[in-house]
Design a binder for these strands. Structure first.
Lengths: 278, 278
DNA sequence: AACCATACGCGAACATCGTTCGCACTTCTA
DNA sequence: TAGAAGTGCGAACGATGTTCGCGTATGGTT
């Protein structure tokens, strides 16, 4: 049933195994296919992605696609995984971490990679990077964070799950650093003791933190995500036809204040870089 | 081009105009069609909604649908408008306002309609109603707040726009009341003066408020929405397979604290559960 | 060097989908 | 009562996702 081949035991990002010519060719075509599909998604959106159309774009017959892809949903799943990774790379760059995969090119110039910058500045940098990626890749953002495919559940330990972990960790890193430096104020409302268990899986990403901090990180993500999501999906267009960056910056500043991070973001000259995003 | 008929001059919610038999029949069928479509959406999700399937469900031929509906997207647009209104009704009920349309039945038992309750309590009530509706109607939530249809833009002054306004106003009401009672602390980060212009359209919903307050309301909505959105779209399922209500309650409590609303939510008997729930 | 299992790609086909068209039938209006 | 307008249906068109079976080229093996 379709998508056969490709020795699964030798799949992870390039051991030095010989990787015969066939396998290389296969991966190249798959990459072309994904690129064509991504172009298509960027133009017409995910729900309108037509398998036949990406086949045309790739100069292949519709039936031929099924040698590389399980189905239309399978292709979308691949795109979702790639999008996750792309977002994670951008966020990592914003906090000065090198991209994970054997990346082709640095996704963006590291915004404020300087670990000596204040926690508020670093937190602002990731937050702005989150928004910048979303605004710059609205369809991919929708792929990841929009309506889930009805039946689909991300396989645990699958590539999307790990990439999602990278995203969460990148967002969390500045706050965790602030906590470890003793410069973070955890709001008292986060001391809900009955959530200790639920939050346990997060230890796999960042071990040995108090559970209130895990909660705080979750709510922080939600706060940023909500604003970005409303903007990207067009629910703020009637107020901010030219983009919500000012609103977002104000919210991030308020978040920094709520977290007790010093408010050094606005000092003259300390631009956080994304100020001219399209 | 389909969907003709229905004298547009007599469309608003029931003047006492005679409303001939034909028009009544027409509205009834349209309602049945929308109900069938909504059932379908609830089962298979919006992207998989098949026009022929709702026709089957309604006992009508596929072609017949086009007497009532412009196209598949047109039908979805109708569902979106209805969903907006349903959400708005639920929120209105949570703050003790009667539903707008000649509603058939009260959507929920008003949670805390008592205007004498503290602002934090009332704010918590709407916030919880927002989440409750979303979790209870995930597909409709996705319809409203998920991937927008690529080409679609809500017509200004259209029904969806006004319903959206109702949603925003319901969410804002407790905070506005708190402001007018002098019991609200506006975070200083909201004093970004260059947003006065952008925020002007909001005066149509709630006039004569300082622009920092409009900004605060927007960020509050985003904060709540992000959490709900992440939950409904399944991005928290790995942590909270049984629902994120505890996390959400903690976040709302933190929000109330950030807004300086009194923390009377926890007084014995009121029990929002964020401290010692279950 | 010869060989053959395997991967690859394609054309044709099927069921289903959204949508249009023309025709019958019913209901309202003049 | 005659004509106009609304309502519904069957058939059809183009496009989609997917499967099947056929050739062909390729890579590793003897």
């Amino acid at each position: 049933m379709g998508a056969r081949g490709s020795d699964p035991s030798n799949d992870g990002a390039g051991r030095d195994a010989p990787l015969g010519r066939r396998e290389r060719s296969r991966r190249r075509t798959l990459a072309e296919l994904k690129a064509a599909a991504l172009d298509e998604v960027r133009e017409v959106g995910a729900p309108a992605l037509a398998l036949r159309s990406v086949a045309r774009r790739a100069g292949m017959s519709p039936a031929g696609l099924y040698r590389y892809v399980e189905s239309r949903d399978g292709l979308l799943t691949l795109l979702i995984a790639d999008s996750y990774d792309d977002l994670a790379d951008h966020l990592d760059a914003a906090i000065g971490r090198p991209p994970a995969g054997g990346g082709d090119a640095p996704p963006t110039v590291p915004d404020i990679a300087d670990h000596d910058a204040g926690p508020a500045t670093r937190m602002t940098a990731v937050a702005l990077a989150y928004r910048a990626w979303a605004v710059g890749h609205p369809h991919e953002f929708g792929l990841i964070f929009g309506d889930p495919v009805p039946g689909y559940v991300a396989p645990a330990q699958g590539p999307t799950t790990t990439a999602m972990g990278r995203v969460g960790l990148a967002l969390a890193t500045p706050v965790i650093e602030a906590y470890e430096a003793g410069r973070l104020t955890i709001p008292p409302a986060m001391a809900a003791t009955d959530l200790d268990e639920a939050v346990r899986p997060m230890e796999a990403l960042a071990p040995d933190l108090p559970s209130e901090l895990y909660l705080l990180l979750l709510t922080m993500w939600g706060r940023l995500h909500g604003q970005v999501s409303l903007e990207v999906f067009g629910h703020h267009a009637w107020l901010f036809p030219d983009g919500c960056e000012p609103l977002y910056r104000a919210d991030v500043a308020a978040l920094a204040a709520d977290l007790g991070l010093e408010a050094a973001v606005d000092r003259p000259g300390a631009r956080t870089g994304a100020s001219t995003a399209t």
